[in-house]
Design a protein around this nucleic acid. Structure first.
Lengths: 150, 150
DNA sequence: AGACATTAGGTGTATATACATATACATGGG
DNA sequence: CCCATGTATATGTATATACACCTAATGTCT
C-alpha cells in the first residue's frame, strides 16, 4: 500500500469516532456557554442530575449508569463535593461512599434548568424535532451496542 | 418549581449533549483499544490523518477543519511533534507554523489503518450499515449547525 | 514612519478522560 | 482464625479540552 493513499478523505470523513468527538466538542461548547451564568458545565450538571434522580448512589453504580470510567467520575465528584453540591455518607460497608445532592446543589440545578432548556431548545431548532429524536435514538443504540461486553 | 422535580428522568435522558458525550466515551474506548498496538489514540490519529490529507497546514486552519479549539490543538500537535510524527516549517510570514507528517508518522498511520478499519467495521456490524450511515449524516448536520456562528 | 488594529500562536489555569496500579475493606474456605 | 479472593475506591500518570489572557508579527491608515 502506497504511503500517500494510506487514508483517503472519504475514510477520514466516515470515521464514526472522529465525527462523534467533533460533534461532542461543538455541542458541549454550546451547552457550556448557555450554562456559564451558573458556574456549572454540562459535564458537571449531568452527574448532579443523575445523583439527584438515582441517589444515594455509589460511584461505581453511577459510573455504570453514565458510561463513565469509575476513576474519572471519582475525580469529577470530588470537585462537586468541594464546591458543596454533593455530599457522601458512609454505608455499613465502609468501602462504599453513597453520594447525594445537597440543598446548595439543588439550588444550582434549579438555576441551571432553564438555561439547559434553552440550549436543548436551540439544538431542537437547529436540527428539527424529528432529527433530534432520531439522533437521540441513534446515540442510545450506539451507547448500548458499543458498551456491551462481548 | 419544587426542588424534587427540578429535572425529570425523561429530560435527563433526552439531553443531546449528555448523550453525545456518553456515546463518545464508549466509542472512543473501542477505537483506542483497537489502536493500542500502535501507541496512537484515535484522538491523535485524527489530526495526523488530517495533516496528511490537507497539509502543510497551519494550526488555526486545521483547528477550523476539525472543530477543535486552537489552543487545544496546539498542545495536541506538540505531543505528536515530540514523538516525531509531525514537523513544522516556518513560512515567509513568521507567525505561521505549517505542519506536515514525517515519514515516521506515515509509517504509524499505515500501521494504524487496518486497526482503525477493524474498529470501524465493528461499529458497522454493531449498528448495521444503514444505521451507521444515518448516524454519520446526523452528526454532520449537528456539527455544521452547532458550529455555525450566529 | 509611527500608531493602531488584526492575525497567528502560545501560556496559565481548570476540568474531563481513562488505563495501570495500589489500598482498604469484606467474605469465604481451609 | 488466617489467607486468598473479590469488591469499592483512590492515586499516578498521561492526554484532551477550552476559556482568558499574552506575545509576536503583520497590515493599514494617516
Amino acid at each position: 500500500m502506497g504511503r500517500d493513499i494510506c487514508f483517503t478523505t472519504e475514510q477520514f470523513y466516515g470515521c464514526a469516532c472522529g465525527n462523534l468527538r467533533a460533534a461532542t466538542r461543538v455541542v458541549t461548547r454550546q451547552y457550556d456557554e448557555a450554562l456559564r451564568p451558573t458556574g456549572l458545565r454540562i459535564s458537571q450538571l449531568g452527574p448532579l442530575v443523575a445523583i439527584s434522580l438515582f441517589g444515594p448512589i455509589s460511584i461505581t453504580e453511577l459510573a455504570e449508569k453514565m458510561f463513565i470510567d469509575r476513576t474519572t467520575l471519582s475525580r469529577d465528584l470530588r470537585l462537586l463535593q468541594r464546591r458543596g453540591y454533593v455530599r457522601t455518607r458512609a454505608g455499613n460497608d465502609r468501602r462504599f461512599r453513597e453520594f447525594s445532592v445537597t440543598p446548595k446543589g439543588q439550588d444550582s440545578m434549579a438555576q441551571a434548568l432553564p438555561l439547559w432548556q434553552q440550549a436543548q431548545a436551540r439544538m431542537r431548532a437547529l436540527l428539527g424535532n424529528d432529527n433530534l429524536k432520531a439522533l437521540l435514538a441513534q446515540l442510545s443504540q450506539v451507547i448500548v451496542a458499543a458498551s456491551d461486553k462481548s
